[in-house]
């Protein structure tokens, strides 16, 4: 079964959005806003929503009451796009989407994921196109101090340590994709670009070497390269020059590449203290309609709609999609 997790618009969501974002870059925004959205839906009386931040209230609605199943897809919570459309005309917005491919997913599957992700965002915002898609490949991390860090070497393990916490999830120690995989993945995005669904394409955390090798493999070259904000003042000169020459805009971000490790996902959906109890515990039977099985995260997409000439973020949210392998 496929699970589609969503956050709704997190801009009005408060505490889940900001907790000391400067202390460490992390996936806290994703996990806490998912958690808050689950809580808001499963604890609320049918019409109004209570204040968020009540993780373990005694009266939880049964799973069926706050999620929705369509065929073999389960929406957690049920997706309601009626109130999430943008308020003004499409032309007023800059819509940026960042798609996080996760480790160990074959490129062939990613092409379908890309279309799916864009489709969910379009539906959610009530629009027909987005302005910028940034794709984030797993295991790539730009290192400003080491000009060779983006060399295509599977043995380069230092690149992963800053982006995720391997101690909580063994799959986090990821080797970067090879170029053939990236090329194949990119083609799906190029197709959507050609169809007019996406205005510009971008990559994240690419250094000069990686860009140099990647560019010839593309039909629509990246117009954007996102660098972690931590490095914004130490971007090496060669990259600045190369980017200028290739007309690639160097933008900043504050995400980690391995944004949803398997352990984190299990915890989010599990029966524990911080979980939404979508999944049944290991020992218990599948009571109350809870699901049993193993979850594997497939991809995560983040979308942001900014009112252009006012600099106001009107809508921002995530979808995270996983495969439930039922036992």
């Amino acid at each position: 079964m496929k699970l589609i997790l969503s956050t709704s618009n997190i801009m009005g969501g408060g505490p889940s959005v900001i907790r000391r974002p400067t202390v460490e870059k992390s996936n806290t925004e994703l996990t806490s806003s998912l958690r808050a959205n689950f809580a808001a839906h499963q604890l609320a009386p049918s019409s109004t929503r209570p204040p968020i931040g009540i993780p373990t209230a005694p009266t939880r609605k049964p799973l069926q009451a706050w999620t929705a199943q369509e065929g073999s897809t389960l929406y957690i919570p049920a997706l309601d796009v009626s109130g999430s459309a943008l308020a003004e005309e499409r032309s007023q917005y800059d819509i940026t989407v960042k798609l996080f491919y996760l480790p160990n997913i074959p490129a062939s599957a990613r092409c379908a994921h890309t279309r799916e992700a864009i489709d969910l965002v379009l539906r959610s915002l009530g629009v027909k196109s987005i302005d910028l898609l940034i794709v984030s490949f797993p295991g790539i991390s730009f290192d400003a101090d080491d000009s060779d860090s983006d060399a295509d070497s599977p043995t380069t393990t230092t690149t992963t340590t800053t982006t995720s916490d391997p101690s909580t999830d063994p799959s986090a120690a990821t080797t970067p994709d090879d170029f053939a995989t990236m090329q194949q993945t990119w083609q799906a995005a190029e197709t959507l670009h050609s169809a007019g669904t996406i205005g510009k394409l971008g990559v994240a955390e690419f250094g000069v070497q990686r860009l140099t090798r990647f560019l010839p493999l593309t039909r629509v070259p990246p117009a954007v390269d996102q660098i972690n904000v931590r490095d914004c003042c130490v971007v090496p000169k060669p990259l600045i020059l190369y980017a200028r020459e290739q007309r690639i805009e160097l933008l900043t971000h504050n995400d980690c590449t391995n944004i949803l490790p398997r352990g984190t996902l299990r915890e989010l959906l599990g029966p524990g203290e911080k979980g939404a109890a979508v999944l049944a515990g290991a020992a218990e039977a599948a009571e109350q309609g809870r699901l049993k099985g193993d979850v594997e995260p497939l991809w995560v997409v983040k979308y942001t709609a900014v009112v252009k000439d006012r600099g106001v973020v009107e809508s921002k949210g995530y979808f995270a999609v996983a495969e439930l392998k039922e036992e």
Binding site: P21, I227, D231, T304, V306
Partner: peptide
């Protein structure tokens, strides 16, 4: 932190 969180939601160039 609120301002930084806002900036993290925006496309801001490195410079």
């Amino acid at each position: 932190p609120l301002v930084e969180s806002y900036l993290n939601s925006m496309n801001v160039d490195v410079e």
